[in-house]
Design a protein around this nucleic acid. Sequence first.
DNA 1: CAGTTAAGTAAGTGATCAGTTATTATCTCG
DNA 2: CGAGATAATAACTGATCACTTACTTAACTG
Lengths: 199, 199
Amino acid sequence: MAKWKRRADARPDELAAAALALCAERGVHATRVADVAERAGVTVGTIYRYYRDKDELIDAALAHSPRPERKLPVSDRPGATLPALSESLRRWAAFLQAQGLQPLRVAMSDPQRGARAPRGVIADAMREIEGIVQSGIARNEIRADLPATEVARALVGALVLDAMLGEDAAATDISADVLSALATRGLRPDGPSWRSAGT
Amino acid sequence: MAKWKRRADARPDELAAAALALCAERGVHATRVADVAERAGVTVGTIYRYYRDKDELIDAALAHSPRPERKLPVSDRPGATLPALSESLRRWAAFLQAQGLQPLRVAMSDPQRGARAPRGVIADAMREIEGIVQSGIARNEIRADLPATEVARALVGALVLDAMLGEDAAATDISADVLSALATRGLRPDGPSWRSAGT
DNA sequence: CAGTTAAGTAAGTGATCAGTTATTATCTCG
DNA sequence: CGAGATAATAACTGATCACTTACTTAACTG
């Protein structure tokens, strides 16, 4: 029975995944290359067969970090904008809660890299939300006097902090609901309750 | 003329401040004790006269991190809630932009510490906003069906991400305006514009 | 203004860790 | 099946860095 296996094709991704997980939880500098190796069931030397140095390994980890499955397109039916926004918020909240923050955590644990690294997930989320808001404005289902970019940034910011502080998944779910109610109807006391009116 | 000065009372804070600034910008682990010493115009040994080890220095830096000047109390006049909320958001935005994120950056650069460290600024901001929302609910100026805690978290989240990605101060100012408009009136197209109706 | 206290310095020191090297074990293919 | 070729290992190495130690110098005090 073999002591170890040659798996030249599978290794790189496994190593990157191990690095991502460890760095997200301990920070880049507190993560030893040997730790990554151990988690991947391998020794240090192996890592250096696939990556020039630790830096390149981390870059790969960030590059291969998970992206959410693609968004549903916004329906053309009148009145579809706000429900679509809610749905999008809920999906992003779930994704961030589950795993989406890993690359962000890694980037924040090493500001030098964070500066040169792309904002990945956050940028994706903001793009999607901004798109929905803009289409809503075009169809007169969202007030036109707020800049879509800022709105998207605010909403995504809320999602991100929520996931960061995030306790359990249930709490995140509620937050997403509250956030979409907040966004669609604001804080003013008039108007229907957020529970009664639509997903 | 003296080569150096004895300043036993001023040193500890200076050292903590230097550590905070450097760690916020480079991350805790990328910041060398010697760097902190140099920025404080001192040599390494001096640091160890005041702090047992690097860890204690960083803890002190976090503990001494700046807090905003105290909030104005919310007026009792009817209709004062929403303007107070706007004002609060704008103040926190400005503070976070200027310096308030330093401790957060430090904490995020070292997740081990971040876990045991208090959330400081963020908690403060959330407490204040939540208080305003609750008093608004009590006076029927804010809809009662949204949990104040979640609302506060969402708003603060937006502020924080904004400051994190934050370009210049002007942008932050706009964001705070947009956020408060979003919060008070929501995205629905009816109702007055955010520019025309009250600070 | 000595003489003592303590703040500061400068030059180590040992441990840790990224990256290497020499070697061994597993595949691949004629 | 056996002979490269190469994936993986185990043991090293040199640099870096947190922390120390021995000494220097500024300030206080009777």
